[in-house]
């Protein structure tokens, strides 16, 4: 089962107003893998996720395994603050039963009373959990996760990555994760895609060395001890 292909991307290119934001990208993802997508700001990471979701136009081919369900966790939803809306009402927009919502709350480790809270008032950590819950509500096999915020309290001692790792095992998920956090790449990823408009490399995390990373982020950056939870922020 482990080597069954769940996603095949063939030579995709995304253009905005004639300028290529992504160019000639090809890769494959197997079932149960965690693929991290690494790259500087403006490298087209979010654009790649959107193309995989099919919500923006692109050239080339994105072939998902037949019948596969995809859950999408967006980076953040700033506009939700403009709307008076409880967490329960937000999750109900997904057209699921109250029962399903209660089940998901257990998975994302939140109490039932959060459903009555106003979504815009949640802490960013709690809201991120809700967004993961949103994505999980359709019982997806694949989770596309756009840049989990690192270093925030999502409740207890658990980091968002412990949480993801647990979910992945529980639900046998394939995860595509956009991140800046190199420690995640080293700890969690089965493969890493380095992206800067075009694909710079597709490799095992351990093959990511400082020369590759400085090529990705520009010459200035040096990572001598990439196993020491070194984090890159721009």
């Amino acid at each position: 089962m482990a080597d069954k292909t769940i996603l095949k991307v063939e030579d995709i290119t995304v253009e905005f107003n004639g300028a290529a934001v992504l160019k000639n990208l090809s890769f494959e993802v197997k079932e149960g893998e965690v693929l991290t997508i690494l790259g500087p700001n403006g490298a087209g990471k979010t654009v790649l996720l959107k193309a995989l979701l099919g919500v923006i136009p692109f050239k080339g081919k994105v072939i998902w395994q037949e019948g596969v369900k995809i859950g999408y966790v967006p980076q953040r939803l700033p506009f939700i603050k403009d709307i008076p809306m409880s967490v329960g009402e937000f999750l109900k927009l997904k057209k699921v039963s109250s029962h399903e919502i209660k089940e998901i709350l257990q998975s994302i480790n939140l109490e039932k009373n959060i459903l009555k809270k106003t979504a815009g008032d949640l802490s960013s950590g709690q809201f991120q959990r809700i967004l993961v819950g949103w994505a999980l509500l359709s019982a997806p096999q694949v989770l596309l996760f756009d840049e989990p915020t690192t270093g925030i309290d999502i409740g207890g001692q658990e980091t968002i990555y412990d949480f993801l790792e647990k979910l992945q095992k529980e639900r046998n998920l394939t995860i595509l994760l956009v991140t800046h956090d190199l420690s995640v790449v080293y700890e969690m990823a089965s493969h890493c895609l380095c992206l800067n408009k075009k694909m710079l490399s597709y490799s095992l995390p351990k093959e990511l060395d400082s020369s590759r990373l400085s090529r990705l982020y520009g010459g200035e950056v040096k990572f001598h001890h990439h196993d020491s939870h070194h984090r890159k922020h721009d």
């Binding site: 979701l53 919500v55 995809i70 999408y72 967006p74 939803l77 506009f79 937000f90």
Partner: peptide
């Protein structure tokens, strides 16, 4: 109005 991408997805 919360997110066009989320709606499309």
């Amino acid at each position: 109005s919360i997110s066009g991408d989320l709606a499309k997805s």
